[in-house]
Amino acid sequence: MTFTFRETTQRSAAPVTVDHDKCIADKGCTVCVDVCPLDLLAIDPDTGKAYMKFDECWYCMPCAKDCPTGAVRVEIPYLLR
């Protein structure tokens, strides 16, 4: 028998989104990435902008509050909406 172990992923819509026109991560900002208590945000090397990498959000909002340009939008995670 040659059953082969497979891992699959579950898709989800990130509740935190970033306005690319406002985000200045390409100028060195990492504030939202630094403050998220759950470490969910990162800078996308392709776009040079911040994005939500992991969907484990506590909808607590330091990312939005501390962003110097107001580029972060926090929505309530879909399951709670």
Partner: peptide, 12 residues
């Protein structure tokens, strides 16, 4: 494990 600036119950 988080960042002291915004960690814990009183984060906000």
């Amino acid at each position: 494990k988080a960042h002291v600036k915004r960690s814990g119950a009183i984060s906000m």
